[in-house]
Every structure is written in structure tokens, then in C-alpha cells.
Design a protein around this nucleic acid. Structure first.
Lengths: 146, 146
DNA sequence: ATATATTTGTTGCGTATGCAACTAATATTT
DNA sequence: AAATATTAGTTGCATACGCAACAAATATAT
């Protein structure tokens, strides 16, 4: 039995990769006043200026409470701005600040580095394949949530 | 831009899959007195009777504190037994109880179902490929920790 | 042999997350 | 129009996790 044979389960493998990743990001982002949990919000927001927290939650498939708190922390640290939506006074609109855009650049680079570490020794085809298969799996999860 | 394009980052994709999975397991395992976080310990222990918590931590790549608490909860719920190692009085030896073995069966089945949900529409080759690539990625992470 | 270092497990504190209950606002029904 | 239902965001509580500090045991160095 080799060293990885305990991770029979796909879920266990995913958990392992996730926590490894989160640990890394937390350490790297600590000095910028944000935690590793915020990185995916910051990444997503770049492409979604003005999005409402609730829509962001659905896209990232996280609970609304999680989004609320991630955005609060990002706002406290000056990376995003939440403004009331004048057309629907229940809702907010979220935008990156200038600082947020700069941080996005940094995080994207960090994320790329992280990918390259995880995918060391992968051929370009293997990288593409992994991404494709994971997207398909996520798509299944999304389907299941409906 | 399609619905999954926000998940550019491999890390974000992994996080998404992990949390989806954890949510599912937490709901399913609630009635058995354990949380979704314990499932990978229970899965691993089946193949590792008598292992020490510290070795288990290394294999699963989690912090020792996490292992301590997962095993405490599993012991409280009657699924594992921790006995002092007579050869090294700092250490413990962990074993599944009878109840633990039965739960392992159940969890393995659950884990399989979960995989099948996530991998709906995958060909057998794609399933094998995904597993292979993820094992390789985990192996890279493990290397990085050394 | 004794002092020092390392190892194993535990605990306190902080972050990330989900669920359920809540408030305020909007939408729907009657 | 008023009553009811739904929606958006927030907050309290619980779990999962990491890190750092600790205690006890063992290993190493001197």
C-alpha cells in the first residue's frame, strides 16, 4: 500500500487539496489583512463588478452568510465597497476598490503559482484535462443544488 | 461567459467541490452523532488499525490538533478507541470499534454515492483519469510539505 | 548521568463555513 | 389596498480547521 492509498475517496482527496491550498493562502494573505477564505471572492469580483451578494453566493455555491462575512472583511480591509442598490433597497452592489484591483492582480498571480505547484510534472494536456473534468464535476454539483 | 467561468482558479474549484461535499456529508452523518469532518478519518482508519494519531495526521496531511479533536469526537460517539502505546507512553494507538466498522461500511457507501453524483456523466476513462491526476496533485502537495 | 532537544498529544484562540432565525424590503394574493 | 409570501442581507450558534503554547515522555548530546 503506497502513501496515498488512504485517500480512496474522491471527497477525501478534494478535502486534502483544499486544505493544503487554504493553509498556503492564509499564510500568504495574512499580512494584507485578509484571510485565505477571501481569495475566491476577490478573484470572482473582478469579473463581476456591481454584482449582488446573493448572486455571488449562487455563483460560488456558498451560503449567503459566508458571503456576507467575506465581503465585510474585504470591505473592512479596503478591498471592496458595498453600496445600496437604489432599485432594490434590500440589496447591495459590490465593487472592487482601487486597492482591490491591485490585490486581485496579486491574488491571481498567487493562485497561478499555487496551481503550478500542485500541477508540477503535469503535461499541458493533463492540466487541461484536470481542469475540464473538475469543471464538469462542479457543473454536476450545481445541477444537484437546483 | 458561462456560469462556471468565475472559477478560473484551480484552488477555487477545489474549494467549491470540497464545501459541496462537506455540506452533504454533514447532513447525512448528523444523525449518527458525527460531523462531516470525521468521515475521512473513519475511512482511513479502516486500513490503518493501531496507527498513532501523529502518523494519521501526516497521512491525511492535517494538523495534529485536528486529528486530536476528530478522534475525540469519534471516540465519544463510540466509533474508535484510543489506547496508550505501551512502548511509547507519549503516543496512542487508534482502533475502530465494532460500531466503527459498521459505520465505515456505511460511510464508504456514502462516499461512493457522492462520487457517483459528482462524476455523473463521466466515462470510466474520465473517472480514472480524474483520480489519477488528483493523486498526482496530492503527491505534489505532500512533496511540498517535506 | 545530566542537561538539552525532540516528539506526541492537548488546549486556547482565530478563521471559514453552514444553518436557522431574524429584519427590512419587495412581490404576490385576495 | 391590505394581508401574505418571498427575497436580501445579517447575526447567533455549531463544526472543521490551523497555529502556537504547553506538558509529558523520549531521545540526544555533553
Amino acid at each position: 500500500m503506497n502513501q496515498d492509498d488512504h485517500l480512496h475517496s474522491l471527497g477525501a482527496m478534494v478535502a486534502c487539496l483544499h486544505q493544503h491550498n487554504l493553509r498556503y493562502l492564509s499564510r500568504e494573505l495574512e499580512k494584507y489583512g485578509i484571510g485565505g477564505g477571501q481569495f475566491r471572492f476577490l478573484l470572482a469580483l473582478y469579473h463581476l463588478e456591481g454584482i449582488r451578494p446573493d448572486d455571488l453566493s449562487r455563483l460560488l455555491m456558498v451560503n449567503r452568510a459566508t458571503t456576507t462575512r467575506a465581503l465585510q472583511r474585504l470591505e473592512d480591509a479596503g478591498y471592496v465597497l458595498r453600496t445600496p442598490d437604489p432599485l432594490d433597497r434590500r440589496a447591495l452592489k459590490v465593487n472592487l476598490t482601487e486597492k482591490g484591483h491591485r490585490m486581485h492582480q496579486f491574488i491571481q498571480q498567487l493562485s497561478k503559482q499555487r496551481s503550478e505547484s500542485m500541477l508540477a510534472g503535469f503535461s499541458p494536456e493533463e492540466k487541461a484535462q484536470l481542469r475540464k473534468l473538475m469543471e464538469k464535476a462542479i457543473s454536476n454539483c450545481r445541477e444537484e443544488c437546483k
